[in-house]
Amino acid sequence: MALLVVEDLHKRYGKEEVLRGVSFELERGETKVIIGPSGTGKSTLLRCINRLTEPDRGRVWLNGVEVTSPRTNIYRIRAQIGFVFQDFNLFTHLTALDNVRLGLIRVKGMGKREATERAMRELARVGLADKADAYPAQLSGGQQQRVSIARALAMDPKLILFDEPTSALDPELIGEVLQVMIELAEAGMTMLVVTHEMGFARSVADEIIFMEKGVIVEQGPPEVLFTRPRVPRTAEFLRKITEFYGESG
């Protein structure tokens, strides 16, 4: 069984049906990139996977455990799924080190010394060991996003969900974050990434999912999708997005 199985997810906000039956799988060590126009339910899909948002219908399995079952301890599941937010969402009142350490101490019940060592290792991994004592407001956007990746990594996640991790960044800061993500993918981390960075999608993704209006329009390996998409909508979107964002990363 795949590491992550998503089956027929539906989510409705009032009248608007944001997810209309989304299904896909993600293998261990695989990186999938979800692309698509704004407001097509990509972020909602990610949040439904670890139930930060409750789906109306459909099921999710992580490592054979049904995430969507009411009997599942959702907190334990969330601890195994890293989540990187578009606007970082670092804990504003904590230093970089404490941001990374908090989950280790409070969720994993790790001792302070062990947690500190682990957190420092993760900060070093994203190149920010020297910023351990800085508060979020003292860090650039790129640095904050790297801390938030370290925060996710520290929990030893089976999978990391990235929700447009570079969209809130100034263009010159995007590279440092993407670099960290590329390294993670190369190290075999399982990742599901919502992004508009086509360069990243093309070079890192094992597979690309194109979503629009709450459904998956097309999915496949990047070389297929970028060169000879089956669906005309995909081609149109890719053309537009490349004009808009270029192929940075």
Binding site: L52, Y75, V107, M155
Partner: peptide
């Protein structure tokens, strides 16, 4: 709410 969501995403309970 985002701070709450970030806390939940690392596995904390709402009370934590």
């Amino acid at each position: 709410r985002r701070q709450m969501m970030a806390a939940l995403s690392v596995g904390m309970t709402r009370l934590q």
